[in-house]
Nucleic acid binder design. Structure first.
Length: 180
DNA sequence: CCCTGATTCGC
DNA sequence: GCGAATCAGG
């Protein structure tokens, strides 16, 4: 399974959303959690919830039989500070858009198998549940999400409504399913 | 024992 | 670049 643009986009979103690698792997399908983690590292976005760690005192002193006498690895690549995630779209309004999860109304939902190029790939529902689907609305040829969902997807930070109601779209890092 | 991410290295 | 194997920690 190749890492297409939309899959990488989904991966990035879910990873930034706080989902674990195994959950992302199950959702994407065809990959293991190791693949997800490996890709995440390759993309350069490994530490997401670790802003307070300028000195990664890794205790990698394990006597693993891995000969590595060449420390030519310049660790000066982690330059990302507490910067927010770059949003491709413009900054949304102060209040969240009135757009909620909107699956197809004729009953046919888009799944990971029925997704095509111009279908919105915004995840809806619990990723670990069987009822998990995607938006499926028409999108621009470039963006993985429909116009409305792209704004939601690239929100800089999660906010709660004044009535204590969470934005009920996207995957929620709740519930864990037993596998294996 | 279950899970998590991190790293290495053969492909 | 990819990901299984492995490591290390919670």
């Amino acid at each position: 399974m190749a890492w297409t643009e939309d899959r990488v986009a989904t991966l990035s979103k879910l990873w930034a959303d706080g989902l674990s690698a195994s959950q992302i792997a199950k959702q994407l399908g065809g990959v293991t959690r190791n693949a997800v983690i490996g890709k995440v590292h390759r993309l350069g976005l490994s530490g997401r919830a670790k802003p307070s760690r300028p000195k990664p005192a890794k205790v990698q002193s394990a006597p693993r039989p891995t000969p590595k006498p060449k420390p030519a690895r310049t660790t000066a690549k982690s330059s990302a500070s507490t910067k927010t995630k770059p949003a491709s779209t413009s900054l949304p309004a102060s209040t969240e858009p009135p757009l909620k999860a909107k699956p197809l109304k004729d009953g046919s939902y888009a799944t990971i198998l029925t997704l095509t190029d111009h279908m919105c790939k915004f995840p809806i529902g619990d990723p670990t549940a069987d009822e998990f689907r995607f938006c499926g609305r028409v999108t621009d040829p470039d963006e993985p999400y429909c116009t409305a969902h792209s704004m939601v997807a690239y929100q800089p930070s999660r906010r709660r409504n004044s009535s204590g109601k969470m934005i009920s779209i996207g995957p929620a890092p709740t519930s864990r399913k037993r596998i294996r």
